[in-house]
Write a protein that binds this DNA or RNA. Structure first.
Lengths: 364, 364
DNA sequence: TTGAAAGCGCTAACAA
DNA sequence: TTGTTAGCGCTTTCAA
């Protein structure tokens, strides 16, 4: 008889396509509430009942819908991750870190790649607002403060990677850019370099601003003067680096030969730019590191594979991702008990200078 | 008076935290249905009413919850994307393609990075089953057919990238591996190479199987004999390539000097492996391409930046992603009109041999 | 230990 | 053109 009923159900169901908790309840001759208790491992279910329910679940191959559940519990088990450029090898490492940490808590990832476009960043934030994710991690936000504030007005917990916004948020995980730039300049100074150029990245990036300022401070600390035209900016790509490299190296040698001999060392905003510089230098017959030393930032896998291998300020990418998730997760736990909002947290990780073959003694 | 009411509402709301469609309806003095019509741009709303509703939405800063909507419409506007390894530069390009195409249709991306682990792939598929995404794209599935069949039993439309499974699915987008391997071998043969080795990737990868088979067929077509120990496998990483390179190059010269002189050319499963080979060759003083020619697969950005730059069989990564979304999307449209299921589609894209500096005339 | 009932936020007939 | 009503699939008091 019970078979009859469940059979009928199973015949009905294919019409709509989905097996629901009510189907399982009917098949197991219990109430939906009990099925809910079983799938959520509530201990207060008689063993016999539990088995009957589990059987029915198996028989109907029931998959509880997270939509219904989310609506009822106000939890989606989903994290939003907004990143600036997935094709820049820096970011996949962060995604990996976030993904792993999220998986630990059984959470899924809604990914938005903004392609360094703040409009798309805004759109992603808008979409995430509707999707009621449990939290959002923004990696390398390019949005101006005002717009950020407007979008962050939502009640979704927000964690930033590599940006400390003025707006309220759970917190920020970033890297001590000052320490990184100092280490790089110290290294170059120790090699005897007195003329160092800096190739910056996207001006909208807080990291870029901090790296440049730290570079200037570090040079000052070493009594190294910086020529105005030795600070340039570039797209944070290999092509951008080639372009900037040509301006920095080509201009000096051809247009104003003798006027401003070219710098003996270059610090780049990221490794991709540094790689571009390496390429144009080699094409121009400028020997690395004999004639020119180059230092990057990030330590993407590519950097170790190059010839010469790139000296760079390594960023702990995976950790950035993991710590961001941890921040979010502890906040979510906290929030459940008491609704209190703590002050924004700041987790600052240390970079590491990785010395490789692209830096050497200053020429002369 | 209306002000009074909405004010009261606004004071109430913060308690629960969310503004709902009912709040807006009350504030605008219309029914929830009308608010729904407005936010979905249904044309049958009087202009005056629409304005009142829009005002209320603005005033309460109402963000419709996609959870409620999804539950009611049975559409989530979300795509699942399962990829094998986000840190392999091959995949971010595909993610970018998928993301862009998905954004075109206003869809979001649930990303799962399996780290080349089929258990995590299974877990991702399980999670996606509960999340009722509108469709799933699996890029480089590593799951054995049986398990895939079990998991694919779900009613979620499935599109594969770079795998043609036996199980039913919407379809597959892949690359003509045979054409790629043939082009590579033709190129090497034309340069006079008669001893070519192949370094394979993950055996669970259908692409790997097809590339190796095509390599063998192409060699046969050129009357090139393949030595057994000239076919090896490696992790699809730079480290894996270094390892395989050492086995292939080191073993020949040291252990059995004179017995089997080393191959004069190597075709690698992917560019990362090829880069690893390049590195150990250079470390061992084997000149590229004078003593050894190397060809990779993919054309990741790194490949053009190397010295020597890598000759490789370029895969149209972005297009793979875009076409996969297109397949899914047209299916979803189709499905709405008639529930008919078409036969699985197969979109096969052409690779391109990119000749660079890592290949040259065979020695002698 | 179990069930009944209400409700999470939205849409979609059907009426009016 | 608008409102009423009934769900979508699940959880969760409160009673039994």
């Amino acid at each position: 008889m019970a078979e009859e009923v469940s059979d009928t159900r199973e015949l009905w169901r294919p019409a709509t396509g989905t097996v629901t908790i009510d189907d399982v309840a009917a098949a197991a001759r219990v109430s939906p509430a009990t099925v809910s208790r079983v799938i959520n491992n509530r201990p207060i279910v008689a063993e016999g009942t539990r088995q009957r329910v589990l059987d029915a679940i198996e028989r109907l191959s029931f998959r509880p819908s997270s939509l219904g559940r989310s609506l009822a519990t106000r939890r989606t088990g989903t994290l939003g991750l907004v990143i600036a450029d997935i094709t820049n090898p820096f970011y996949p490492e962060i995604v990996r870190g976030v993904e792993q940490a999220a998986a630990t808590h059984g959470m899924s990832l809604l990914l938005y790649d903004t392609a360094e476009d703040s409009e798309r960043e805004a759109e992603a934030l808008r979409l995430l607002g509707e999707r009621k994710v449990d939290g959002v991690i923004i990696c390398a936000s390019r949005l101006p403060e005002e717009r950020l504030a407007a979008l962050a007005a939502s009640d979704t917990p927000l964690v930033f990677i590599n940006r400390q916004p003025a707006v309220w948020s759970i917190g920020t995980v970033d890297v001590d850019q000052e320490a990184g730039a100092h280490a790089a300049v110290d290294h170059l100074a120790a090699l005897g370099h007195r003329r160092i150029a800096y190739i910056g990245g996207p001006e909208a990036s807080q990291v870029q601003q901090r790296r440049r300022a730290a570079f200037q401070a570090a040079c000052a600390a070493h009594d190294i003067a910086i020529l105005d035209h030795d600070i340039v900016t570039a797209d944070p790509t290999i092509a951008g680096g080639q372009d900037a490299g040509r301006r920095l190296l080509g201009a000096a040698s051809s247009h104003r030969a003798g006027g401003h001999p070219r710098p003996t060392a270059i610090l780049a905003y990221n490794d991709l730019i540094a790689v571009g510089v390496l390429m144009v230098a080699q094409a121009d017959g400028i020997a690395i590191p004999a004639h020119l030393s180059v230092v990057g930032h990030d330590d993407i896998p590519l950097s170790a594979a190059l010839h010469p291998a790139l000296t760079t300020v390594r960023q702990p990418m995976r950790d950035l991702g993991k710590r961001a998730v941890r921040l979010l997760h502890t906040h979510l736990q906290h929030q459940q008990r008491d609704g209190a909002r703590d002050a924004p947290a700041l987790v600052r990780l240390a970079p590491t200078l990785i010395v490789r073959a692209s830096t050497g003694l200053a020429p002369h």
